[in-house]
Design a protein around this nucleic acid. Structure first.
Length: 707
DNA sequence: CTTAGGG
DNA sequence: CCCTAAG
């Protein structure tokens, strides 16, 4: 029922506004069945009052959390203020109810939360929003504040989290995991909003606008009915790829003078970011976690367990931070991870497998900060940042074991073809929405085909049976994906530029991969190719590295990076996070294809940096090497560096003719051997000796007793 | 989490 | 690059 309703919203629902809110009936129902429809207002008023009282009396974190959520929720609806007040109260309600249990409901709720939050985000991000809306939004906050400081903090937290895309789980109240998840999803909406603004940031009005790829996701939590048909609740999120200027938040926040807390929060978030850029490592970790064994094992779920979160497909966005990160963050991460596991577990129990989100984190970008890779989460919303092109993946879930050899599919989300929207800078957000809506409508109107991806490959033969295709086999289901494809060649909707036809339809693999490159630059260009794509990316990478290498000082590098790739830098963080967040299944999605990180040959400059670092630090301190020379190269882990060193040593020893790949200057190889031999002898890794050691090495490269 | 090594 | 054992 609930699902059904949602479904009804279906495509029509593309409009953002619709997405978020669940039918009143539902909300009401959750809240209280006894309430009469006609008395909603009265009820809500009462509820709000009660809610306030409740909040005031309850200092528990959970209550606060719910409050926070509610507050956040307010923004978007046209209903605005009034509604906000009303909602607040009972929202909390359903949060609680959720705890009680009905999984399906939980999902629903989660959705709601998501929407609300997203709303919130919208506000925070959309500069162009009309003052009125914002104002109302703010007001709502104020009210909430009255309830107590706790609330504020909660909000702040949320804010922070969303900013970082970290997982929302933390919140201090595990119980509200969904809401956390929701944050992730929110991204989508937020981005949408942002799109319009993008221009400003990039200073490239036209380009941005013209190229902003929009991704729309239809996300449907899988309704798992053991018995019957598949019901697809469609939760839609539209996700445009856009650059999100980080400043935006600050600005907005700033606008809110009455709330000092907010300001603080923002600042804090900013700081955090600055200090801990998203790390690839994190990504890796996630992947690892998501990987096979972990799924089954369901690792120790500790602290926070958010069972419900499992249902939210929105996805968890776990963020991994560098070790420098504050503890609370780490714990949060942990929670997230746990959640992931838990989630996984749940799914397993239901015999469902989720998959989706493709992402290509590393594959694509390199820029250190840019981390732009995106992963997608189930949550669809997630999206990627900037450039994305996205991939979207579809999440789908399937359950097998149907007795009569039926294959059940629960499609979590569809990948909607990319849309290119062009609107004048002066366009209002509203018009942007409409434009997008039109674009979507046009696509839908022209007819859509459903593409089926199996293990990253498009299944084209419609006449084959599922069994023949392998779709009936459990393993394959994992890597099964669905996507909506434009029926017509003219994929791009009205406002779209017609330049990337092929890209849009690219198949499968592409979906999975995308380059997180500089939004501005790449905006329109999906790096969809699975592997080969080293095109843009590689260039970027190299350039980055060069920067890095040449510049021994991190500072310089950063600056440079910043300059060169503003967009990247700005957005990247987000992307990264997005990546991190998502994807439980990326792997699954791309199936075997994606399991392995894309290969990224070391550039000469990187080698140089590596050699230099090793000369100074020795061969036993890879982490330090990483920090020193590749701090900003998130895709290079210390293990990578170690491995590279290993190969370098080997390369240096073999005949030049036997070497492959980009030739490494002999000079460097000599240094490699020198350093290698030196450190072999000086087993120690004395820090004080650096200088001495280095000089020695330098002095007598010749004396390299190769072994 | 890091290292060190094997694959 | 990945995976693991071990610290």
């Amino acid at each position: 029922m609930v699902f059904k309703k949602r479904q009804d919203h279906g495509f029509n629902g593309f409009r953002l506004p619709t997405i978020p809110r669940a039918p009143r009936s539902i909300r009401r129902g959750l809240r209280k069945k006894t309430v009469e429809d006609t008395q909603i207002c009265a009820f809500e008023l009462l509820a709000s009052i009660a809610g306030k009282l409740l909040c005031e009396s309850e200092s528990s974190a959970s209550s606060n959390a719910s409050e926070g959520i509610d507050l956040l929720a307010c923004g978007k609806d046209a209903v605005k203020q009034e509604r906000e007040f009303e909602d607040k109260p009972f929202k909390a309600d359903w949060l609680y109810q959720r705890n009680c249990g009905d999984s399906s409901f939980a999902f629903e709720m989660a959705s709601q939360n998501i929407s609300h939050k997203s709303t919130w985000k919208e506000f925070s991000h959309a500069e162009s929003d009309d003052a009125l809306e914002r104002t109302s939004f703010i007001k709502s906050f104020d009210c909430s504040q009255k309830t107590g400081d706790d609330v504020k903090s909660v909000i702040c937290k949320s804010k922070t989290d969303s900013e970082n895309y970290s997982s929302k789980v933390e919140g201090g109240s595990p119980q509200f995991g969904e809401s956390c998840d929701a944050n992730v999803n929110i991204e989508a909406e937020r981005r949408l909003e942002v799109v319009g603004l993008k221009n400003e940031d990039a200073n490239k009005p036209n380009i941005c606008s013209s190229k902003v790829p929009t991704e729309l996701f239809l996300e449907s939590p899988a309704a798992i009915n053991s018995d019957s048909n598949v019901k697809l609740p469609l939760h839609q999120d539209s996700v445009p790829n856009a650059c999100f200027p980080r400043h935006r938040n600050d600005i907005k926040l700033g606008s809110r003078d009455d709330d000092e807390n907010f300001s603080r929060c923002f600042k804090r978030s900013t700081k955090l970011k600055a200090f801990r850029p998203p790390t690839r490592i994190a990504d890796r970790r996630i992947r690892k976690l998501l990987t096979s064994k972990y799924w089954k094992v369901a690792p120790k779920l500790k602290d926070c367990e958010l069972p419900r979160s499992a249902f939210v497909d929105g996805g968890l966005k776990p963020l991994y931070h560098k070790r420098k990160t504050c503890h609370d963050r780490q714990s949060r991460q942990k929670c997230q991870r746990d959640i992931l596991f838990k989630r996984r577990k749940l799914f397993d129990q239901i015999s469902v497998v989720t998959s989706d989100g493709g992402f290509s984190s590393e594959s694509v970008s390199n820029s250190p900060e840019k981390g732009m890779t995106e992963d997608k989460n189930d949550s669809a919303a997630i999206l990627h940042g900037a450039n994305g092109v996205s991939s979207s993946v579809l999440g789908h879930q399937a359950s097998f074991h149907s007795k009569d050899s039926h294959v059940k599919f629960s499609i979590k989300s569809f990948r909607v073809p990319e849309l290119f929207i062009e609107v004048p800078e002066t366009a209002t957000v509203g018009s942007l929405k409409r434009t997008i809506m039109e674009a979507v409508t046009s696509i839908l109107g022209s007819g859509l085909d459903v593409g089926i991806l199996l293990q990253g490959k498009k299944v084209r033969d419609d006449n084959r049976t599922l069994m023949q295709t392998g779709i009936s086999c459990k393993d394959n289901l994992d890597s099964l994906g669905f996507m909506l494809e434009p029926n017509t060649v003219q994929t791009p909707p009205p406002t779209c530029s017609s330049d990337l036809p092929p890209l849009l339809s690219c198949d499968s693999s592409q979906l999975l991969t995308r380059s997180p490159e500089n939004p501005v630059l790449d905006s329109g260009i999906p790096d969809t190719l699975p592997d080969p794509p080293l095109t843009n990316s590689s260039n970027h990478v190299d350039s980055n590295h060069d920067t890095v290498h040449t510049v021994s000082s991190p500072t310089d590098m950063n600056d440079k990076t910043t300059l060169d790739t503003k967009a990247i830098v700005a957005v990247p963080a987000m992307s990264m996070e997005a990546l991190a967040v998502v994807p439980l299944n990326q792997k699954t999605r791309r199936s075997e294809l994606v399991q392995r990180r894309t290969r990224r040959p070391f550039s000469v400059s990187e080698v140089e940096a590596l050699v230099h670092a090793v000369e100074e630090l020795g061969t036993g301190r890879w982490r330090d090497v990483k920090l020193r020379a590749f701090e900003n190269a998130d895709h290079r882990t210390y293990v990578d560096l170690k491995d590279k060193w290993k190969t370098l040593v080997h390369t240096a020893k073999i005949a030049p003719q036997q070497r492959r790949g980009e030739p490494v200057p002999q000079e460097l190889l000599d240094r490699v051997l020198a350093a290698h031999s030196y450190w072999s002898q000086h087993q120690a890794k004395p820090q004080g000796k650096h200088q001495a050691g280095t000089s020695k090495i330098m002095e007598a490269p010749a004396e390299v007793p190769v072994e």
